[in-house]
């Protein structure tokens, strides 16, 4: 269980706004092992989203390497990167980001269109909806659901291609504490079943669930501890 799945080496990320350059991440070095449950904490603007986007290959670092199972993601083309996003990571956003014109079932199915993994069966969609407790809402549109329910659909969507890594960027930021707890319970169970979970939050209550906490401050890893 000590296999490294993600490795960041001397990663920098700079944003250019006009003549100004914002260094959002500075010299990040990080090893993430299989089946870890990592919480990334830090104040707003500290670089959490930037870091998750780099791990999920939604963006490329200005400098440094990001390795997934030893393969450098920064060197990959659009086709390879898209395959990585579709098959190896499941992304969960603070704002859910479901496609409003599709119903719940179709939203969950969506990532399968972009995956070339074999063996997907449509039954799996209902199984996942059952896992997140929304089986009976399968044919509703996202806007007919509460925030907490939408986020659970997003989790089902993130799981449909059976990725090794789940990345969640403040997934409970828009939810009340009761719903937040439901989401966190799901994450905990997923982690127990072997998924690597990387969660960004500024809600310290959520940190309890994780087994490793990384404290980001102003683009650098200030400290980290393992429980």
């Amino acid at each position: 269980m000590n296999e490294v799945i993600i490795q960041l080496e001397n990663v920098y990320k700079a944003y250019k706004i006009g003549n100004d350059t914002i260094l959002a991440l500075k010299n990040i070095n990080l090893l993430i092992k299989k089946a870890e449950f990592i919480s990334i904490v830090g104040p707003s603007g500290s670089g959490k989203t930037t870091l998750l986007n780099l791990i999920g290959a939604l963006d490329k670092p200005t400098k440094g390497k990001i390795l997934f199972n030893g393969i450098d993601l920064t060197q990959q083309n659009d086709k390879e990167i898209s395959k990585y996003r579709a098959e190896n990571v499941g992304f969960i956003f603070q704002t859910f980001n479901l496609i409003p014109s599709l119903n719940v079932w179709e939203n969950v199915k969506l990532p399968t269109y972009f995956s070339s993994k074999k063996g997907f069966k449509e039954d799996k969609i209902m199984e996942l909806l059952e896992l997140v407790g929304l089986k009976e809402r399968a044919f509703h549109k996202p806007l007919q659901l509460s925030g907490g329910e939408q986020q659970r659909v997003a989790i089902a969507r993130a799981l449909v291609n059976d990725p090794q890594i789940l990345i969640a960027d403040e997934p409970t930021g828009n939810l009340d504490s009761k719903n937040a707890e439901i989401i966190l319970d799901i994450f905990k169970n997923l982690n127990l079943s072997g998924k690597t979970i990387i969660l960004a939050t500024h809600n310290l209550k959520l940190v309890e669930y994780s087994n490793r906490i990384i404290h980001l401050y102003d683009g650098v890893i200030k400290d980290e501890f393992v429980r």
């Binding site: 999920g56 659009d78 898209s82 395959k83 579709a86 956003f93 969506l110 990532p111 995956s115 291609n161």
Partner: peptide, 15 residues
């Protein structure tokens, strides 16, 4: 935002 979401879940540029 939707296009960003699609890209995040694996849609290629050509898609």
């Amino acid at each position: 935002r939707e296009i960003g979401t699609l890209r995040a879940i694996g849609a290629r540029k050509i898609d």
